[in-house]
């Protein structure tokens, strides 16, 4: 460090000796604790973002379900049978939407942190950006898993019966965690890159819209060619299909699953790189 014979000060200077992973891991733990404390202190936000997918689920099952059911399961009569078939069809999509909904809240929270004084202070310290923002990522992923379990519970109350076995649940937990990490890093990147809190709340709308432009709520083969081609090749479709397969206990299509995992890894790297690039960007103070 410095060889300057600086003025004496009672406090010790910043520790620089321990470098590398343990240091980053410790910072990550510190920032995760902050993130979890904030969720506990401000629970209404968590409740609000869990409520969003639940309302969506109720709306789609009880308003559209009776009619849409016939479209997703051939030979299903409209009405109660249609509703049950439609609940089965959209439960995976609603789980995915839960992650999207939390991603939006994460982007807003990160943007508020970035424009406020806290991150400005941390940017003047040697603490690594990955630790500053990684805390929000870990917190949001845990929040996503808890919220998804709650939403799944509501779906079961409505009559949804998952067909997954032990391995299926394990696979689902693992895959969904990976997916939550992807969406959260993208959300963090959107929050860091946003010029204002307003734009940080708008950009993640795309994450809420994409499940509709995929196989989430209706089969893609009912869509016009241009929309169908987009739907088949956007990341949410293989993700939803993989969740659907794991949750339903039906055999997974290997190509679809690996495509989903590939998208997840690629988009995580993108989100992380985008975050790093934007973090040190000068911003008006």
């Amino acid at each position: 460090m410095s060889t300057v014979a600086a003025a004496p000060h009672p406090a010790a200077p910043h520790r620089t000796a321990r470098a590398g992973l343990p240091r980053a891991a410790r910072d990550l733990a510190t920032m995760t604790r902050r993130s979890l404390l904030r969720m506990v202190r401000y629970p209404s936000l968590t409740v609000l973002i869990v409520l969003m997918p639940v309302v969506l689920l109720l709306l789609f099952v009880y308003v559209f379900g009776g009619a849409f059911g016939a479209g997703v399961a051939a030979g299903t009569a409209p009405g109660a049978a249609g509703r049950a078939a439609y609940l089965d069809y959209i439960a995976p999509a609603v789980l995915v939407m839960t992650a999207s909904s939390i991603a939006q809240a994460t982007a807003i929270g990160v943007a508020m942190d970035m424009t406020g004084g806290i991150v400005t202070r941390l940017r003047t310290t040697p603490v690594a950006p990955v630790a500053v923002l990684g805390g929000s990522v870990v917190g949001a992923v845990l929040q996503t898993l808890v919220a998804a379990a709650a939403v799944l519970g509501v779906a079961v109350l409505l009559g949804f019966r998952p067909g997954a076995g032990g391995a299926g649940w394990l696979g689902l937990a693992g895959f969904f965690t990976l997916f939550a990490v992807v969406l959260t890093w993208l959300a963090v990147a959107m929050g860091v890159a946003a010029r204002s809190v307003e734009s940080a709340s708008n950009t993640p709308m795309v994450l809420l819209l994409l499940p509709f432009l995929g196989s989430g709520f209706v089969p893609v083969d009912t869509m016009p060619t241009a929309v169908r081609l987009f739907a088949e090749h956007q990341p949410f479709t293989p993700v939803i299909e993989t969740v659907r397969g794991l949750l339903g206990g039906t055999p997974l299509d290997a190509t679809t699953t690996w495509t989903a995992v590939g998208w997840c890894v690629a988009l995580t790297v993108l989100g992380w790189a985008w975050t790093r690039r934007s973090y040190r960007r000068p911003r008006p103070s």
Binding site: R18, R26, T30, R34, L37, R38, G116, G117, T120, L122
Partner: peptide
């Protein structure tokens, strides 16, 4: 640096805010 924007976390207590900095500086 103490800037014009407050760098205090509004949801953490005084003790938690101070401890956050101490932890981040690896005291």
């Amino acid at each position: 640096v103490t800037g014009q924007l407050s760098a205090v976390d509004p949801l953490l207590t005084v003790a938690e805010n101070l401890r956050l900095v101490a932890d981040l500086f690896h005291l």
